[in-house]
């Protein structure tokens, strides 16, 4: 039922979303933790930067990433110096762009989960001889589990759903940067509506199921 090109696009999309989500959980957790705990005057600035992709057109984000990562941009020069070449129009470039683009969808649920837990459980753990790291893994992580699940679902789903950033930074290279959303665009341009239907319908169903799972999950456990 799926053409070879469509299978490649679906596979690439799932790979991109999975890698992006894993990176975001690793990078986003300390950022969310810092945002939830700090009294620093930089909290507002960092919070705003993380939230930017929520309001910016993907083309703006894509444009600047292209400038910075491109052969004349600072990061581009660095990656060339390190012998990695330039990132735009590669899968790695797509991952970097997706990490920025989906950042708020992971950081914000985590930050809310950490804020809801508050400082008290950490103080309790400290009076029971747990070091801060110990307390984070044995108390904060289990209590923030609903937040981590929400963050993973949203980060994954949002990466699957991106289009503009992909087009700007990744272009449209089969099996490298041609993800489902771009593939649908191609099909529609070529008037292959049947092919487009298969992918578009699949995306619709996927997105609905993800949101259904998210909204029908039982209430998060509360601190007692």
């Amino acid at each position: 039922m799926l053409s070879e090109a469509n299978v490649a696009a679906v596979w690439l999309t799932l790979k991109l979303a999975t890698i992006t989500t894993v990176i975001l959980l690793i990078v986003g957790t300390p950022i969310a933790w810092w945002l939830a705990r700090t009294h620093s005057k930089w909290k507002g600035v960092i919070g705003a930067v993380v939230a930017l992709p929520l309001v910016l057109p993907p083309t703006v984000l894509g444009f600047y990433l292209l400038m910075i990562l491109g052969p004349h941009g600072p990061i581009g020069q660095l990656t060339q110096f390190l012998g990695w070449g330039v990132l735009p129009f590669t899968f790695a470039g797509l991952v970097v762009a997706s990490v920025f683009y989906s950042m708020p969808f992971v950081v914000q649920p985590l930050q809310q989960a950490f804020e809801a837990i508050g400082a008290r459980p950490l103080e309790v753990a400290a009076t029971l001889r747990a070091s801060p790291w110990d307390a984070f893994f044995t108390v904060v992580l289990p209590l923030a589990k609903p937040g981590f699940i929400t963050a993973s679902i949203l980060g994954f789903a949002h990466t699957v759903g991106e289009f503009g950033v992909v087009l700007m930074i990744g272009g449209n290279i089969p099996e490298k940067t041609r993800v489902v959303s771009v593939q649908i665009y191609d099909h529609v341009e070529a008037l292959e509506y049947a092919e487009a239907h298969v992918l578009a319908g699949g995306m619709l169903l996927f997105s609905f199921l993800v949101l259904l799972a998210l909204y029908s999950r039982k209430g998060t456990s509360t601190w007692k």
Binding site: E123, L128, P142
Partner: peptide, 30 residues
């Protein structure tokens, strides 16, 4: 000395049990 290196016990005003652990595991935690 940080709190976790002071050999003390602390009972907070409101109950502060870890909600994800049973009573037994709460007792074992410290």
């Amino acid at each position: 000395r940080p709190t976790h290196r002071r050999p003390l016990g602390y009972v907070f005003q409101e109950a502060s049990l870890f909600p994800h652990l049973s009573v037994r595991k709460n007792l074992d935690y410290g």
